[in-house]
């Protein structure tokens, strides 16, 4: 075999890998879509589940939205504040490096471990019960490091010239951060928060252990209410159901989850593009 043939075979192999990679997403989407579209109906989207595999998934849709929103509401301010400290104030010493190491490790922590901690500490020890609050707080443990990392990076990307100009006009450091740095970094920060929301939305183990059983028939009325999520519902129907009806409901719920997830991802993409375009002409 001559060198050219070898080269071509390698090229074809690499190309095939790319094709496979690209195909994964559409195949999953089409698969889930075609299996799930059948059960999608007004009743399915607005009803409440009963007798395991009957009824709708409205409380689960709302539960997922509540969990993710509350998780960001709690996690985002904390994450952004930490990022501001790390990027702007923290001296580069052992303590800061330790903080960084902690957040990096937390980012890679298996979610089941976080869920177990949430169960033991929040649900039992702090007596939050399996509830919306316990679930959202546990989820924010998971998304916090991502928010911090994305925000810190976005803050550090803000050109030094902006800070110099602001300080040279007699602004204080905090005024500079608030009026110049954060607005300039906000698209990056928002993208980070949105990606964290996407992660939280797809999380199963953590909410499973801390927020509810998955088949809740009611929309949560307070922070202490048990709250079901789409992910739990899907898991239950796919593993405990024994009929094809239950399986296609799992797919229907997956389709809804997928659409919600994509809405978040697409918003993240739009914000990111806007960001790049704005930095573009410089």
């Amino acid at each position: 075999m001559d060198e050219l043939t070898k080269e071509n075979i390698i090229k074809a192999g690499l190309c095939a890998s790319v094709v496979i990679t690209i195909l994964i997403l559409p195949v999953i989407v089409v698969w889930v879509g075609s299996n799930g579209i059948g059960v999608i109906s007004w009743e399915f989207l607005t009803g409440r589940p009963y007798r395991f595999e009957l009824g709708g998934i409205f409380p689960q849709i709302v539960g997922s939205i509540y969990l993710v929103s509350l998780c960001s509401l709690l996690g985002a301010p904390l994450g952004v504040a930490s990022a501001i400290y790390l990027a702007e104030y923290a001296p580069n010493n052992v303590i800061t490096q330790t903080v960084r190491f902690f957040t990096e490790t937390l980012a890679g922590m298996p979610s089941i471990v976080i869920g177990l901690f949430g169960l033991e500490f929040l649900v039992y020890y702090l007596q939050l019960k399996t509830s919306l609050l316990a679930g959202a707080v546990s989820l924010s443990f998971m998304t916090l490091p991502w928010t911090i990392r994305a925000s810190e990076e976005a803050i550090k990307m803000v050109p030094r010239g902006y800070r110099d100009a602001s300080l040279a006009l007699g602004a204080t450091k905090w005024q500079t951060i608030l009026k110049i740095v954060l607005p300039a970094a906000s698209p990056g920060i928002i993208t980070g928060i949105l990606l964290g929301m996407g992660k939280a939305m797809g999380e199963t183990a953590v909410v499973w252990l801390t927020s509810g059983s998955g088949l809740e028939a009611f929309v949560p009325r307070s922070l202490r209410s048990p709250t079901g999520s789409l992910t739990m519902y899907i898991y239950l129907l796919a593993t405990q159901g024994h009929t094809s009806e239950s399986m296609s409901r799992a797919f229907g719920a997956s389709l809804v989850l997928l659409v919600m997830f994509m809405a978040v991802s697409v918003s993240a993409l739009i914000v990111r593009n806007y960001y790049l375009r704005r930095l573009g002409p410089r």
Binding site: G161, Y162, D164, A165, S166
Partner: peptide
């Protein structure tokens, strides 16, 4: 400054 640096 050397490089024009208007705020965005």
């Amino acid at each position: 400054f050397q490089k024009p640096n208007p705020f965005p």
